[in-house]
Simulated scan of single mutants.
Amino acid sequence: MFIQSFGEWLYDTPISTTFRDITWVIPAVQSIHILAIAVVIGSALVSELRLAGLIATDEAPGNVVRRYLPWIWRALIVLLASGTLLIVAEPARTLGNTIFWVKMALVLGAFVLTLAFRRPLLAAQAGDAATPAKPIAFLLLAVWVVVIFCGRFIAYT
């Protein structure tokens, strides 16, 4: 019940009303959100496929992770900011939606897994770290794909 009453309160705030009243705000923020998702997925795809040993095998895994991980973190910050704006603009659409909470749990899980399994690569000298198991790389890719699907399904549930 707290989430529902919080959502109703948030919906009635002046900033939420302003976001909804200015017709270009929500589409612009959604576009930025989607572009940031593309950066996360693109960077994760290259990193995970390298860690799975499928691409760029001539380059040390740590070097690939060092190159793409900053892109993931920056894009996640943009996703957090744009997602927060979308929640403020349309709280009922998200806060009361189970799919939204599944998406948030998956993003948190991917974040934790990325930190846990990339830290040894970042700490190691180039070429010193062993490549993590393929299943972890594919699991992270799968989680990001499910996050995308959840994001799309929020609009339909």
Score class of each variant (00 low, 15 high):
residue 80 L to W: 15
residue 115 L to I: 06
residue 98 T to P: 05
residue 125 Q to D: 14
residue 115 L to E: 09
residue 99 I to L: 15
residue 88 V to K: 10
residue 119 R to K: 12
residue 63 N to I: 09
residue 91 P to F: 13
residue 106 L to F: 13
residue 94 T to M: 15
residue 110 A to V: 07
residue 66 R to C: 03
residue 99 I to E: 08
residue 70 P to F: 08
residue 121 L to Y: 02
residue 112 V to D: 01
residue 72 I to G: 01
residue 66 R to P: 00
residue 93 R to C: 11
residue 117 F to L: 11
residue 106 L to R: 11
residue 88 V to W: 09
residue 120 P to L: 03
residue 125 Q to G: 15
residue 69 L to W: 06
residue 60 A to Q: 03
residue 64 V to A: 04
residue 67 R to F: 08
residue 109 G to D: 05
residue 78 V to I: 15
residue 105 A to K: 03
residue 108 L to R: 03
residue 87 I to W: 10
residue 83 G to I: 09
residue 96 G to C: 08
residue 85 L to C: 15
residue 67 R to T: 11
residue 116 A to V: 13
residue 63 N to H: 04
residue 125 Q to E: 15
residue 55 I to W: 00
residue 65 V to T: 09
residue 60 A to N: 01
residue 101 W to I: 07
residue 61 P to T: 04
residue 54 L to E: 14
residue 63 N to Q: 12
residue 101 W to E: 06
residue 111 F to H: 12
residue 60 A to H: 00
residue 125 Q to C: 01
residue 88 V to F: 13
residue 75 A to R: 03
residue 118 R to G: 04
residue 114 T to V: 08
residue 123 A to E: 15
residue 60 A to D: 10
residue 114 T to R: 01
residue 96 G to I: 07
residue 119 R to H: 07
residue 104 M to I: 14
residue 69 L to T: 02
residue 86 L to T: 04
residue 98 T to G: 12
residue 103 K to T: 04
residue 122 L to H: 05
residue 68 Y to S: 00
residue 112 V to E: 00
residue 86 L to N: 04
residue 60 A to P: 04
residue 124 A to S: 13
residue 60 A to W: 02
residue 116 A to M: 12
residue 99 I to V: 15
residue 55 I to Q: 00
residue 66 R to K: 12
residue 124 A to R: 09
residue 58 D to T: 10
residue 70 P to M: 08
residue 120 P to I: 05
residue 83 G to C: 12
residue 90 E to Q: 15
residue 67 R to Y: 01
residue 104 M to L: 14
residue 55 I to F: 02
residue 102 V to I: 15
residue 55 I to D: 01
residue 102 V to N: 07
residue 96 G to P: 03
residue 92 A to Q: 14
residue 73 W to I: 14
residue 73 W to P: 00
residue 120 P to G: 05
residue 76 L to V: 10
residue 83 G to M: 11
residue 114 T to G: 13
residue 59 E to V: 13
residue 70 P to L: 07
residue 119 R to S: 06
residue 85 L to V: 15
residue 53 G to E: 04
residue 95 L to E: 10
residue 122 L to F: 02
residue 75 A to I: 06
residue 90 E to R: 13
residue 111 F to N: 10
residue 78 V to Q: 07
residue 80 L to P: 03
residue 89 A to V: 10
residue 111 F to I: 09
residue 56 A to R: 07
residue 95 L to M: 14
residue 96 G to Q: 11
residue 98 T to A: 14
residue 114 T to Y: 04
residue 115 L to T: 02
residue 82 S to G: 08
residue 50 R to I: 02
residue 67 R to L: 11
residue 69 L to E: 05
residue 81 A to C: 14
residue 90 E to T: 14
residue 52 A to C: 09
residue 98 T to I: 13
residue 49 L to S: 08
residue 78 V to T: 13
residue 75 A to Q: 03
residue 116 A to F: 11
residue 122 L to C: 05
